[in-house]
Amino acid sequence: MADIVKKATRHGVNEGLVELAAVHEDIICLDADLGNATGTSVFHKAYPERYIEAGIAEQDLIGLAAGIARAGLVPFANSFAVFAAGRGFEIIRNAVCYPNLNVKIVGSHCGITPAGDGGTHQCIEDIAIMRSLPNMTVLSPCDFNQAKLMARLMYEHVGPCFMRTSREAMPIVTSLEDKIEIGKAQILRRGSDVCIVATGVMATLAVFAVDELAAEGINAELVNIHTIKPLDMDAIKASVRKCGGRVLVCEEANMYGGLGEAVAYGLVGTDGIKFDHVAVMDRFGQSGLSGELLEEYGITSANIKAHAAALAKK
């Protein structure tokens, strides 16, 4: 993978937002003193008059965004996922989702890939928290290009949206020409031996796993879930049926409350399901060098490949 260009989804969404802001003057970008980390510094540089610094105050970050939306603008509020979705939760619930305001929240540094910072900063709960909220749409692009495309989709969608993005620079597996829409799953690879349903960086890692499996004679279907809520169960069910009920869900999040449970819930009543899950197994993250940490937590294409291969034989 040495010659492959790697970029992070956190930068994709902000590059997309800067381009959109040139056309849409109602876009306001807010951050809570993490602009250089979340990547919103590019927006700050391009449109300083439309960049609102909330300070180290994530509750107020969300409240200010709600007020800015009520004043007729379209705010994008940014912080690390753990602070935006965690500390901001009840403000998101009562000030954004309850009145169904057009507020966009981007939580970066999701999952355990922000390796050095350790467990306090590695958010494995945001999917569960955000998908539990009525009115909320939950997005999870798999790579830089998709995050860039989804900045526009998020702007065009009217209503509360949460997007989780990643700190980690990863290979780009999708195209800026892709026709994607919120709530529609994207089939990245066609196969019929095992169905891999993956989101975020796991979908990117799964692309490499699937290509290696193909060389070994196992043809996996890869369903990329860039929209966790509303979840495209029709597409997932069709792919899972095609693969004889064998489904492997992969997410860089805790095993509880995330995509795995959402897919399993959606498959209740479907006969012959053989389910497996690559996720964080109900423990917090910790500091480590990126490679060794991902290995420790199974956030690797090799782990996805091993689970898929085993499932394909069942």
Binding site: I28, G63, L64, I68, A71
Partner: peptide
């Protein structure tokens, strides 16, 4: 009060 502050800020921005 947080939302009110955001509203006042929004009107200033506009």
């Amino acid at each position: 009060i947080s939302v009110a502050t955001g509203m006042a800020l929004g009107f200033k921005l506009r």
